[in-house]
Design a protein around this nucleic acid. Structure first.
Lengths: 270, 270
DNA sequence: CGCGCCTTTGACAGTTTTCAAAAGACGTGG
DNA sequence: CCACGTCTTTTGAAAACTGTCAAAGGCGCG
């Protein structure tokens, strides 16, 4: 059985066969599918179940008073949607499906039991939360100090890496159902501008994107253009861990460090 | 003894006198002071101590390869600087003092014991982490969908609220040692532009800022201009809790909801 | 085959950035 | 108590990413 949730945690820890079986069992018979554009969890909702995304792609978002949507994070298979239910009364944002998705709904009680009994899972949850924080901080860097080109390059590269972690890529190609409007709402740009930048990427032979499949043709250059550094994802244990797990992402995060030229910002891609 | 850390957690939970005494005891004899511009924790560092900010103001930041600094969050008294040390090998960002600060360094071992033995603290830590996530998400909304004026108004209002939570304000006045350059690095604007916006705020009688003390002269309007809604801070327990705790922030978060006009963005303040 | 959603294109407007440079503030040492 | 260097705040004018507003072109799907 494919269990992206366990696969993600394996980037941090190593489960015994018994633990792994328990994680798998937790998902059985609790699957639910969600249509595109449906809310997996509504803003203001309170549930006594945790939602784990198993397939598809979703986002955390909020609608501002003037009707604009801001996407605050993308969720890929393996991501936990609502760790906050353990302590907060209600969701302060919504989780929306950007493509048809399936989730597993785990009763909060069972999750708490699991966390109490299997310390490795409890640590992995903590690791996942700390990584979520780091990803959000990185997004702030994107918005604050990177221009449109860098921002999109950085985001695309991160997505490739995150899909790789849970084994849902075919080399440098993966399902990419995110529309340019979604990207705009996530990056704080306009769809128009996102379009212009992506076209440029294609012209330059950096990526290929057709019928919702994205291929990163030139990963090292995309990484360079996005000024991407993987350290914020905290995969240090990955590189020294199980070879099978390491190989899922290894080649994407150990490009030699590059000294970025201080000049050459706008216009020319690097 | 003033214990902003406990005061912050009291926004979420209610400690017994014994628990409170234990929290106080943990800080005794572990204070350390930090000069302006000094790193409280360096990027890449690993420590076996947790750092709690007790006074002053600090920030999470990182320096990009081209030398630019991005501030990802401000830390006010009561905030925990490095919850990640429990699971991550090294800090992926630094904590810097923006004014003279004092911190308490708590050995990780003692912290873990505390978390194991006092479930209310453990829950409060989880709440604090979820709130940190929410604050970061709100910052992303700032960057993505709010212009310079809204962004700064929002930030100033949030700071007032957070200082209030830990009892370090005098009405609507509080220490504000953050320079305009700091604000620029946090908001993703240039110091020049920050300056122009702040001047506008002063002209309009919204705020008064002199000799590092900030007074919010017209809180409701500042809230409106920043399109501020307190729900992301998850103070729902505050409003229904201990009156003494509630009164610290109560008047700032229950202004009547306003229907924002869809027009009137740039130029005119609301 | 037709509708609906997503992607492209264009021209123009406009916050924000750049790049300097001057004026204030503040703390220290003489 | 004043000189003096340093850091912060102000100001100006011009450049420029990115946004706005429409409208047309593609593509998938029932």
């Amino acid at each position: 059985m494919i269990n992206p949730w366990a696969m993600k945690m394996e980037q941090f820890t190593r489960f015994t066969p018994h633990e792994r079986a328990r994680l798998d069992a937790l998902l059985v018979g609790r699957q639910r599918s969600h249509a595109v554009h449906a809310d997996i969890i509504a803003e203001g909702a309170h549930s006594d179940h945790c939602h784990v995304l198993l397939s598809g792609i979703a986002c955390r978002y909020t609608i501002l008073p003037d009707g604009e949507r801001q996407i605050m994070a993308f969720l890929v298979p393996g991501d936990l949607c609502d760790a906050e239910i353990f302590v907060l009364k209600r969701m302060d944002h919504a989780i929306g499906a950007l493509a048809p998705c399936t989730t597993a709904m785990i009763p909060a009680g069972e999750m708490k039991t699991l966390l109490r009994e299997v310390s490795r899972v409890s640590e992995a949850l903590w690791w996942g939360t700390m990584t979520d924080l780091a990803v959000l901080r990185e997004r702030i860097v994107d918005h604050g100090r990177r221009d449109a080109t860098e921002r999109l390059a950085h985001l695309l590269y991160e997505m490739l890496l995150r899909y790789r972690m849970v084994g849902q890529t075919d080399g440098e190609t993966f399902d990419f159902a995110i529309t340019q409007t979604d990207l705009a709402d996530a990056t704080g740009l306009t769809p128009t501008h996102v379009n212009r930048v992506l076209q440029r990427f294609r012209e330059e032979g950096l990526i290929a994107l057709r019928s919702r499949r994205l291929t990163v043709v030139d990963p090292p250059r995309l990484m360079r253009i996005g000024r991407f550094s993987a350290n914020y994802l905290h995969l240090e244990r990955t590189l020294s861990g199980d070879p099978a797990v390491r190989d899922r992402v290894g080649d994407l995060i150990d490009y030699p460090a590059v000294d970025y030229p201080i000049d050459a910002r706008q216009g020319e891609l690097r």
